[in-house]
């Protein structure tokens, strides 16, 4: 019995793609390798017996090679799907992507039609889940206007959707400076007019900066709350439907639900 080689990688698109490249080209054979991504709390899942652990250092050139191959040999659409899966909070997503790509490179651009296969349907479901959450945040993000004119927003998404939603806001608010801060991952996307938006890691030292952000801002917050209350039809009050459409977990960051 040969031992399983487990490749440990960083929890990012590039990290996972690097590990895919390394594991694939290692020559151990697909059934003898596994990829495991780092959890969001920077730990790994339980160690397995009788396996070798290999730590993969993220290499952008290798990651680029993988993304280029996916785009050329499978399709642009599948590339986007794989990226969204890589941004999800699904545990074991790195290995899932590896298994999915094996089938993808065999079948080509028609891979998503093979929905009756377990790997494909799992990828399909995770992709949908991440897309839905990203779409929710397009609507649920709330900006506060600072005195300086900077727009700031704090979110707590389950998946790492920051990079999926920022381009929408950069396009929409092209003349505004804004920051969207993902407090769960301590990352923020920053937009300055006339330049492309970018994502930064916020170290613990800088986090205090963002405590000021959620401050009670101005009259428009009150106006919005007024509108929010008066637009509801009393005779049709329906908290269950409201909760179904707008789960409680989003509300903590939304102006209209703050006291």
């Amino acid at each position: 019995m040969s031992t399983i080689k487990i490749f440990l990688c960083e929890n990012s698109i590039d990290g996972i793609f690097t590990a895919v490249y390394v594991a694939w080209s290692s020559g151990y054979g697909h059934s003898n390798v596994k990829i495991e991504e780092e959890c969001e709390d920077h730990s790994y899942s339980n160690m397995e017996l009788f396996s070798d652990y290999i730590t993969v250092k993220t290499d952008y050139d290798l990651a680029m090679k993988v993304s280029r191959s996916i785009k050329n040999k499978i399709s642009e659409e599948v590339y986007q799907i794989v990226c969204r899966v890589a941004l999800s909070n699904h545990i074991g997503k790195a290995d899932l992507i590896y298994r999915f790509l094996i089938r993808g490179f065999q079948i080509g651009s028609g891979i998503m039609e093979h929905l009756s296969e377990e790997v494909v349907s799992t990828v399909f479901k995770i992709n949908r889940y991440v897309s839905y959450e990203a779409h929710h945040f397009l609507g649920f993000v709330r900006f506060s206007k600072q005195e300086s004119g900077l727009l700031t927003s704090v979110i707590h998404p389950k998946n790492n959707v920051l990079s999926l939603i920022s381009s929408h806001f950069a396009d929409r608010l092209s003349n505004e400076k804004f920051v969207i801060y993902d407090e769960n991952r301590k990352t923020a996307s920053v937009h300055i007019p006339g330049r492309p938006w970018f994502i930064v890691q916020i170290s613990d030292y800088n986090v205090n900066l963002f405590e000021d952000i959620s401050c009670e801002e101005d009259e428009y917050q009150d106006l919005w709350k007024t509108f929010f209350d008066s637009i509801a039809i009393k005779e049709r009050t329906n908290p269950k439907l409201q909760r179904n459409n707008l789960p409680l977990r989003f509300r903590g960051d939304m102006t209209e639900f703050k006291p």
Partner: peptide, 23 residues
């Protein structure tokens, strides 16, 4: 969106909130 103006539009529509009646 375009330079010098504010806003864009998405074909599928975006819900920004849900009032007490669930709409």
């Amino acid at each position: 969106g375009s330079q010098g103006s504010m806003g864009n539009s998405v074909a599928c529509g975006i819900c920004h909130s849900f009032s007490a009646d669930g709409r």
